[in-house]
């Protein structure tokens, strides 16, 4: 069966661990993949895609050695295969220009500043995954306990 995957990209190992730990609640239903560079994430995306998995969400840091998070997200945004994938930029160090770039060219769905708040992060993840599942036409019933009920009901009302 295809998995629904959340990809986290963060070069700082401790921070990566911390994000993953904060999202561990999702792990019983969704697959959480951790990457310490955008390049690694790029390869992972290829693998996931070829296995037919759904990459529902990418949570990326911005400033990392190698490819920056915004550049990576722009790449993903321009790839028709990951057109519906939701994107969160989670960063403490993004310039004004980076942010503009992220919004205009990477079409990020959320911008979260470090340090983040776990409750907010979980809520955003829920909302975005709900959105993704409905948009993709995946049967939402097995995931319903991890979905944002308001988003779910609103979307279903408009598009049952």
């Amino acid at each position: 069966m295809e998995k629904i995957v959340i990809v986290i990209i963060e070069d700082q190992r401790e921070v990566l661990e911390a994000i993953a730990r904060d999202l561990a609640t999702f792990e019983d239903t969704f697959m959480i993949e951790e990457c310490d560079s955008a390049d690694e994430a790029g390869e992972l995306m290829e693998t996931l895609d070829s296995e037919g998995d759904y990459v529902a969400l990418i949570i990326s840091d911005h400033i990392m050695p190698g490819k920056s998070g915004v550049d990576f997200l722009i790449e993903m945004n321009e790839d028709p295969r990951f057109e519906s994938t939701k994107k969160i930029l989670l960063t403490g160090l993004a310039t004004h220009q980076d942010t503009i770039n992220a919004i205009n060219n990477a079409a990020i769905d959320r911008y979260i500043e470090k340090p983040w708040n776990q409750t907010n992060l979980i809520n955003y993840v829920k909302e975005l995954i709900t959105d993704y599942i409905l948009k993709k036409g995946i049967d939402y019933t097995p995931y319903v306990h991890h979905l944002n009920q308001t988003t779910l009901l609103n979307k279903l009302r408009n598009n049952p």
């Binding site: 190992r13 401790e14 990566l16 661990e17 993949e33 951790e34 990457c35 310490d36 690694e40 992972l44």
Partner: peptide, 11 residues
């Protein structure tokens, strides 16, 4: 040691 393996190794 902490988590000393890279994410790709763990994968």
């Amino acid at each position: 040691r902490g988590q000393r393996h890279s994410s790709s190794f763990i994968r």
